[in-house]
């Protein structure tokens, strides 16, 4: 659905993107991660045809970015989405519906879907930040888009609305929409997307499923052992682990050693109460790949 190949974007001397390539297939949810200024928003604007790439090419279902055909298929939620404060939510949505060639009657249903039914006839100037973000979501849902470009869609949303948002996203992906979203909230992205692309200083340093990234990173796994009272020191000694508090001992091991270590823990028998396996979090994987890129750059 979306094909990005060898996209480079230069802002004066700043290389916002260097040679970035990846695809997003229909029905796929891809999270674009990266530090502040990594180039996420820039990449999205290029995909939308808002700014041109310095070199490289983008195709939206075979169309050029920003072409009429591509715009017909695409929905966008900008970061820091803004609307005219003098219009009400309903008026603003009716405007966007007509701009997409859809019946303006749908405004009410869309606003109710994002939980703004109660404020539909209030001016957007009186909305809270999260409410404005929901108006942004509502306009991105117009007309069954085939490609959704969402720049930090959950920023400013409360936890419940975030869950609702991802539920809507699941529905759209089931319907065959390709979704590219950027985020800084790693935990929610981990659970709700199919693939992760990580940008670091404009370079694509990772692009795979979370499971594959985890394997590829080869990061140590943590085993949290709950010892019985008074046995923590002995457990720590026999497992070569670190005593965290009166009851808990942490053991770090390579992924390949995991089963072996678990066997040893089981062998301690009555000394151990419980054991928890903590795989490297997305944060760990994320920092691993970002650091990797830094080191590579340092050498270059």
């Amino acid at each position: 659905m979306l094909r990005i190949s060898r996209v480079t974007r230069q802002f004066g001397s700043v290389a916002a993107l260097s040679d970035v390539s990846f695809d997003v297939a229909a029905g796929e949810r891809v999270a674009l991660l990266g530090h502040n200024g990594a180039g996420k928003s820039t990449l999205m604007k290029i995909v939308l045809g808002l700014i041109p790439a310095t070199s490289g090419s983008v195709s939206v279902a075979g169309h050029a970015p920003g072409s009429r055909a591509a715009r017909d298929l695409t929905a966008y939620l900008p970061e820091n989405v803004a609307f005219h404060p003098a219009l009400t939510g309903r008026e603003q949505l009716r405007f966007y519906l007509r701009m997409k060639g859809e019946p303006p009657k749908a405004a009410e249903g869309l606003l109710e879907r994002v939980g703004l039914g109660h404020a539909i006839d209030r001016r957007i100037g009186t909305y809270s930040k999260g409410m404005r973000q929901r108006v942004g979501l509502a306009q991105a849902l117009i007309g069954r888009p085939r490609l959704m470009i969402l720049d930090e869609p959950t920023s400013g949303l409360d936890p419940v609305s975030r869950r609702e948002f991802y539920a809507i996203l699941d529905e759209l992906a089931k319907g065959g929409a390709a979704i590219l979203l950027s985020s800084h909230a790693l935990t929610e992205v981990e659970a709700r997307t199919d693939r992760i692309a990580i940008l670091s200083r404009g370079i694509l340093v990772a692009n795979d499923t979370i499971a594959a990234l985890r394997r590829g990173a080869g990061l140590p796994i943590q085993l949290q052992v709950a010892a019985r009272p008074e046995t923590a020191d002995e457990v720590a000694e026999r497992l070569a682990g670190v005593r965290v508090n009166g009851r808990r001992v942490d053991v770090t091991c390579e992924p390949d050693d995991k089963l072996d270590r678990l066997g040893k823990i089981a062998g301690l028998g009555h000394l151990v109460d419980d054991v928890e396996v903590v795989p490297p979090s997305l944060e760990d994987i994320y920092s691993h790949f970002s650091r990797l890129a830094d080191r590579r750059e340092g050498r270059a």
């Binding site: 009429r68 715009r71 989405v81 803004a82 701009m99 060639g101 306009q139």
Partner: peptide, 13 residues
């Protein structure tokens, strides 16, 4: 200034 321009320019208009 308001930042409303990028969004509307992605619409088929």
């Amino acid at each position: 200034e308001r930042g409303t321009l990028p969004l509307i320019l992605t619409y088929p208009v």
